[in-house]
């Protein structure tokens, strides 16, 4: 399926990725090419086939309800871009 500029802008927004204006054309062409490759599977009749999400089709193990973690805030925040008083900082959230 061929995408247009607006499609690409919408997808980029959905994925929160900034694209420079001058790159949109090239991105659109490349994404369209990939979708064309993907679209080859549209020809296949898969009616009645159960989708496969996990190769092994096993089931989820359950963990006992135990607290195993301790405070490592200092170590974790040492690699954070911006923190203050133990909080991660982001531009003001408006609700």
């Amino acid at each position: 399926m061929a995408l247009n500029r607006t499609d690409v802008e919408n997808i980029a927004h959905l994925a929160r990725i900034a694209i420079n204006d001058e790159d949109i054309a090239a991105t659109t062409a490349k994404l369209s090419g990939i979708l064309e490759l993907i679209d080859k599977m549209q020809a296949v009749d898969t009616q009645g086939i159960v989708p496969l999400a996990h190769p092994l089709e096993t089931t989820q193990r359950l963990r006992d309800d135990l607290v195993t973690e301790s405070n490592q805030r200092e170590a974790f925040q040492a690699i954070a871009p911006a923190t203050q008083e133990g909080l991660y900082l982001v531009p003001q959230v408006i609700e």
């Binding site: 980029a12 994404l31 979708l35 599977m41 296949v44 898969t46 086939i49 159960v50 989708p51």
Partner: peptide
């Protein structure tokens, strides 16, 4: 970035069945 965008597109409203679900069926 390309793969993230392809993936976001394949999962987005209106395309999920044709892309993601179809791919999982082929996976089967």
């Amino acid at each position: 970035k390309r793969r993230i965008m392809v993936g976001a597109y394949a999962l987005s409203a209106g395309y999920y069945d044709a892309y993601y679900l179809q791919a999982q069926k082929i996976r089967r």
